[in-house]
Amino acid sequence: MMNNLFSIFDPSTNLFNLSLNWMSTFIGILFIPLSFWLMPNRHFILWNFIANKLNIEFKTLLGPNGLGGSTFIFISLFFFILFNNFLGLFPYIFTSTSHLNMSLTISLTLWLSFMIYGWIFNTQNMFIHMIPQGTPAILMPFMVLIETISNIIRPGTLAVRLTANMIAGHLLLTLLSSTGINMPNYLVILLVIVQILLLILESAVAIIQAYVISVLSTLYSSEVN
């Protein structure tokens, strides 16, 4: 059994001797009721509106050379990360996106796909990205080295950005809540207000991080076309 809120950061925590923590990743399926597929209701209109807006924006980022239908990959990525980030705000629900196991798997898979496609089908374009336009000849070797390192660390920066933001907010909420036991009543009321404000902030961060990861992945994809 879990003894405290810190156990939500431990992937190996067992519940009744069953390792069910990673199963929280699939709870997002509950956001898709059967009526979503049967008739246009408010739930359908809301998600359809968000998906259409994202589709328009991702098409703009990919440019005219983007492959048709590739925006659905990034829309699905947005919803997947959003569900996991949002569900992690509930007590005792394991936040899979707060671990590099999950975030690095997503970012590394996308990055490798972009790199393999780019170097096989758009080799000349990939070499062009190594040297910015107008670079002096003497600086070209250094620019190639810098751009190569910048390209290699991209999946790591994507994963760490998502993981760090999720862990930081959750730890702050947990640490503040653990101090309320020894506080007088008037300070407990203030603590509750602060916790509510932080929870609202974390809800915004959950949405923003899903959007940032999707947009950056789209930008990285547009460079190989």
Rank of each mutant, 00 (worst) to 15 (best):
N3E: 14
L5T: 05
F6M: 09
F6C: 00
S7P: 00
F9D: 01
P11R: 03
P11V: 04
P11C: 07
S12Q: 13
N14A: 14
L15H: 06
F16N: 11
N17Y: 10
W22S: 10
S24V: 02
F26R: 06
I27L: 14
I29K: 10
F31M: 11
F31R: 06
I32L: 15
P33M: 09
P33W: 09
S35P: 01
W37F: 15
M39K: 09
M39Y: 13
P40G: 07
N41T: 07
R42G: 13
F44S: 01
N48H: 08
I50D: 07
A51L: 01
L54T: 00
N55I: 00
F58V: 01
T60R: 15
L61W: 00
P64Q: 13
P64G: 14
N65S: 13
L67V: 10
S70N: 07
S70G: 02
F72D: 06
F74D: 04
I75G: 00
F80G: 01
L82T: 01
N85M: 09
L89G: 05
Y92P: 03
F94Y: 15
T95G: 08
S96F: 07
S98D: 11
S98Y: 06
H99K: 12
M102E: 04
L104T: 04
T105P: 02
T109P: 03
L110M: 10
W111G: 00
M115V: 07
I116Q: 08
I116N: 05
Y117E: 11
G118L: 04
G118I: 00
G118E: 05
N122G: 02
N122W: 06
N122T: 01
N125I: 08
I128D: 15
H129W: 14
M130Y: 03
I131Q: 04
Q133S: 13
T135R: 08
P136W: 07
P136I: 07
I138G: 02
I138P: 01
E147G: 01
T148A: 15
T148K: 04
P155W: 02
T157R: 14
L158G: 06
R161L: 11
T163M: 15
A164R: 03
N165T: 06
I167Y: 05
A168I: 02
A168D: 12
G169M: 05
H170N: 10
H170V: 02
L171K: 09
L171P: 00
L176C: 02
S177P: 03
S177I: 06
S178R: 10
T179E: 15
G180C: 09
I181V: 11
I181A: 12
I181P: 00
N182V: 06
N182E: 14
M183N: 09
P184G: 07
N185S: 13
L187W: 13
I189T: 10
I189Q: 14
L190F: 10
I193K: 11
V194H: 09
V194I: 14
Q195E: 13
L199A: 09
L199P: 05
I200L: 14
L201K: 06
L201E: 14
E202S: 11
V205N: 13
V205H: 00
V205G: 00
A206K: 02
Y211M: 11
Y211D: 02
S214Y: 01
V215E: 12
T218L: 06
S221F: 07
V224N: 03
V224F: 05
